[in-house]
Amino acid sequence: MRLRHLQIGLWVAAIAAMIIFAGTRWATRSEGVAENSPAFTPVFTLADEEGRIRTSAEFRGKFLLVFFGFTNCPDVCPTTLSDVAQVMDDLGADAEKVQPLFVSIDPERDRRLGLAAYTAAFHPAILGLAGTETETQAAADSFKIFYERENDAASPDGYSMAHSPGLFLIGPDGEWLRQFTYGTPPAEILSDLQTRF
């Protein structure tokens, strides 16, 4: 009888531990990627505006400012890309040390609408990438970011995309350095970059 109580007690403890573990895992996930998360090297293989395959490896030696978005997005994406454009202008001669990337999370539609005209409207330095669904998911997983298609009758073509709106900074060795959360003023991004050159 006592043994049975002990058994039940152990089960309760085990389940409680599982719940706490799951809870902390979930909490970490939902915060997105913390600024002080352990170093990792995100990778991608995605087609550019002209259909050429570009990989993370070819950008070694440069800082990357990476934004995941979609061109049908009227509010968050234009705001962030405008901020990136401002940073690129303000960098002056240091601009060559930084490559801004726009990774489409809605690649099929964005290729159809035209990716080159979109990125160029913000800044000629911004390179647009739009891979296959599989390649895009792999890139997002590697950057530890989230995106999801949401059906919405009140959006173009009946859907919109939910996504992590941060701007991600990758170092010249390919290592993750930090994210700038949505709405970080361009001046702050600029001064952060300037401390790293």
Binding site: V76, D152, P165
Partner: peptide
């Protein structure tokens, strides 16, 4: 034309009607 709201929750931006 529709009204939308940008919502950033748990690090994810969405744009509900």
């Amino acid at each position: 034309p529709m009204l939308h709201e940008t919502v950033v929750k748990d690090g994810v931006a969405s744009m509900p009607h």
